[in-house]
Design a protein around this nucleic acid. Structure first.
Lengths: 339, 339
DNA sequence: TTTTTTTGTTTAATCGATTAAGCATATATT
DNA sequence: AATATATGCTTAATCGATTAAACAAAAAAA
């Protein structure tokens, strides 16, 4: 690789010190460099196609203009989209994003955080996994700016941007009830993470609220490992029983995709044999024979808020900010059964 | 942000020079540091939870272990998946990937390349856009390692990893013919890029080869700007004519998604009114009422080859490598019409 | 014993930027 | 005319690592 043009080269060409060149190029009008020299420097810089070495600048300034993004599962379109949005938002503010996926494993999450810290990221945006509480505390203790997204730990005072999961689940279930379903099952993850417990709570309270029956066997909590199996078992259980459910609520899009695939396999027709509501979008849902009713999270707001809050905290000490956004229920045909 | 532990801190704690610490931590057995001091240094490093500053290291070494990835359109799942794969492959070799999307615009591509060069990436993986030939030549002239993917310029001798687009299109069309279709239309992009012209050539020659009719009005080349409109017009033209086509070949998944959506709108049933074959996968295709026949590109091989070749070229001067992979036709129901 | 070699460690330059401080000149203020 | 201030540029330290070269002390060879 041919060696790059540096300040030194410009300085030599113009016949001034590197300091002068630096002042011209980075301080503009505020420097005390004469108009004459200033012009010469700019001209030389253009002629040599000077491109500043960000690495050197970062080292000196102690700032890399880089954000570390840790998502929980990049194969999930929800996180893939968020990553894209965060990247775009960050670019607007001149930040680069380096990201990785923890795949819902706390140890991977820790490795990633360490890796990103070595790269001197200025701060983090993290969708924390179960068991990563200590890691988050470590960041906090070391005064490293970070914003949690999608999930947060109620016991840790920190920045976060989430949606009101309780409310979202509640109204999704409410809708199922309003459209005539009485026996409603839910497939969720087995997780102590707040966002998941809230979704489950929303499901429960919506039923109670309307005085509907609540059966333990209608709520299935799947392990992250073995999702496919888990979903199949759950569906088998809920459809084979004497009192089979007439509606199913999926707590995430991944669960929904697996569920729909299995329902197809079993030749159950959504909208005739069973009603469905899911969390999150999937491109696939658009093409599904029965358009799905789903909880739409405001991804753009989620991402832009996260970036805004983080960059704020990077540049100055600020109070922690907590944002809870409202999700929207997109009602389509899958939430009622046509008799 | 609390200031980080540096070599200096370890040196001070142990009572040696930073040089010694550096030798211990980076040279291991090959250094001439005594076992005794060596142990003390390692112990101190662990106690202080020392994390080397990669920025400083990069500056000194002139190497960042970073790859710049420029894709043509990140909203296309094809590129999104490639990006993911490249990231994973790179991580295995200890490289980080910084990427951006040129959105098929040459000027954006140039901005991105400049930006990534400022960040001192060690090399590039690029899906070049139309009109970016000069940019690629610039990289070549400056001895900056790069690998082109998906597309390449026949006139520029460079590394590249592509698939045999002619062959892929040829056999896709061949399949349509074999399953009884006679009037076959194609919707492609209007582009001088080699991969696109090859796909079109494959379409043409497959028809000629089987002695089928070839009409200019059955081949529509859409502008990147205004895809939705273009696809609609193309479909209108090909279905309204006196001699309407009985099969459609989409040159990319984006075109296919728009096409299928419009066909839905028009209430045309794929597999009854019209046969379809598409390039690339879409998650959505799985859930489509009529499973799509499509050309499956070997993404994993594409990505891993690109990373392998690039990292090779980064570490030593090597001959340019050209890889042409074979695509696979995944035959499902959409390619024939059930009478 | 003297010289050479080996061993263990430090000194100092370097990567490419930024910037406080220093130092002439020129200009303004008394 | 003497002093103060402003202007324009350079010097040199710094960020945190790496590493060639220097150096002192110990071990081996003469």
């Amino acid at each position: 690789m041919k060696k790059k043009v540096s300040l030194k080269d410009i300085a030599k060409k113009v016949g001034v010190s590197t300091a002068t060149v630096s002042y011209v190029l980075s301080k503009g009008k505020n420097s005390r460099v004469s108009e004459e020299v200033s012009e010469k420097v700019k001209k030389a810089a253009k002629e040599l196609n000077y491109q500043p070495n960000q690495i050197a600048k970062s080292l000196k300034m102690g700032k890399t203009f880089t954000i570390g993004l840790v998502v929980a599962d990049i194969s999930n379109p929800f996180f893939a989209n968020i990553a894209r949005i965060i990247e775009d938002e960050a670019k607007k503010l001149n930040y680069t994003v380096i990201f990785g996926s923890s795949d819902e494993q706390a140890d991977k999450s820790w490795d990633l955080i360490q890796f990103l810290m070595n790269r001197q990221v200025d701060g983090f945006i993290i969708a924390p996994t179960e068991g990563s509480e200590k890691q988050i505390k470590h960041l906090k203790d070391n005064n490293i700016p970070f914003v949690l997204i999608d999930r947060h730990f109620p016991k840790i005072d920190s920045n976060y941007v989430v949606i009101d999961n309780f409310e979202a689940a509640f109204s999704a279930i409410d809708r199922l009830i309003e459209t005539g379903n009485k026996k409603i099952g839910m497939i969720a993850y087995s997780s102590a993470l707040h966002h998941m417990t809230q979704r489950i709570k929303g499901y429960r309270e919506a039923l109670t609220n309307k005085g509907l029956e609540r059966k333990n066997s209608w709520l299935h909590e799947i392990e992250y490992s073995g999702i496919e199996e888990g979903v199949k078992e759950a569906i088998n259980a809920m459809l084979d029983e004497n009192d089979r459910v007439d509606a199913l609520f999926f707590a995430t899009n991944t669960l929904a995709v697996h569920g729909l695939r299995y329902l197809n396999e079993l030749k159950h027709i959504v909208g005739r044999d069973i009603a469905i509501v899911s969390f999150d979008e999937g491109e696939a849902f658009d093409f599904y024979y029965c358009p799905l009713t789903y909880v739409k999270q405001p991804l753009l707001e989620l991402g832009s808020n996260a970036v805004r809050i983080l960059t704020n905290h990077i540049s100055r000490d600020a109070e922690n900010e907590q944002v809870s956004l409202e999700a929207k229920l997109i009602v389509r045909e899958s939430c009622k059964i046509a008799y």
